[in-house]
């Protein structure tokens, strides 16, 4: 499988620096659909649109802005954002190691894998192996898509996993919803423990599947039989828009930017 690098840089601990790439570790399993134009079945693409001029704005004319008042923005260039933590956007510098067992799982946010880049294979293997032996994980600050993350880097089945962590002040207090002091009935307690004991086993995630996905796939098969497929018109790309690799590059930067935007929105 060709792995798509989300980021390339260096991971370092003490005086050892390893060139690596960040790749995804999880993929949402939901069946994804495309939005089509009902008239011609052409796929719809998300573009940035100026509501005043009613035109599509190409990525090179788009800039990020921070709202300081209604309709008033401070424009911020990508270079300016990058200048905030230039080292941390290129290097994952492990500042200390911790015992994984000490981490409350509430801190875990999103997982990725790190894979070695050319020339880094040996040092990568060493870090995987010694973290496995010592059962330790490295902690680092790392900037990805203009956001700074606290991350834990651990050894998992022969690879390095990088898991972003929530900051301490993002964990909400819970004292207000704690149960009132409750006298625990000894008999209830022992029955409960007996039930749990009888239900003990190993974690086997493969046992559970999202039934919905299968239902959706079945529905799609049935629809195909009933009404067949539709075909989108072929889009002519050669409207003097430059060489195709340029278009790809622009679309890629657009995609990245939007991804950043979506994340920002999601986390509101």
């Amino acid at each position: 499988m060709a792995v798509h690098a989300i980021w390339s840089g260096t991971i370092s601990f003490s005086l050892v620096a390893i060139p690596v790439q960040l790749v995804k570790a999880v993929e949402p399993g939901r069946v994804s659909f495309h939005l089509l134009h009902s008239k011609d079945y052409s796929p719809l693409v998300r573009k940035m649109f100026c509501p005043e001029e009613e035109v599509i704005i190409p990525p090179e004319e788009i800039i990020r802005g921070y709202e300081i008042g209604p309709g008033e923005y401070i424009p911020i260039k990508d270079e300016e954002l990058e200048s905030l933590s230039p080292e941390r956007s290129r290097t994952i510098e492990i500042v200390e190691f911790i015992d994984m067992q000490e981490v409350d799982p509430i801190y875990y946010d999103h997982p990725y894998y790190l894979v070695p880049a050319k020339g880094g294979e040996k040092a990568y293997r060493l870090l995987v192996e010694v973290m496995r032996r010592t059962n330790k994980a490295g902690l680092a600050k790392f900037v990805l898509h203009e956001r700074e993350y606290l991350v834990a880097v651990k050894s998992t089945e022969g690879a390095l996993a990088l898991i972003t962590l929530h900051y301490h002040d993002e964990i909400l207090p819970y004292e207000d919803i704690e149960p009132a002091e409750e006298k625990i009935d000894a008999e209830v307690q022992s029955r409960l423990k007996q039930s749990i004991k009888e239900m003990m086993g190993d974690f086997n995630p493969g046992k559970y599947a999202d039934d919905r996905r299968k239902k959706v796939m079945d529905l799609l098969k049935q629809k195909e039989k009933e009404q067949g497929q539709v075909e989108a018109p072929v889009v002519e790309e050669a409207e003097g828009a430059g060489p195709p690799d340029l278009i790809a590059a622009l679309e890629e930067s657009m995609r990245k930017m939007k991804k950043g935007m979506r994340r920002v929105k999601q986390h509101r």
Binding site: R46, K47, F49, P51, E61, E67, M257
Partner: peptide
């Protein structure tokens, strides 16, 4: 949170 603006006139852009 950032918004995406049209560089020329700083109008906030929408997804369409």
């Amino acid at each position: 949170q950032f918004h995406l603006l049209h560089q020329r006139d700083r109008v906030k852009l929408h997804q369409q």
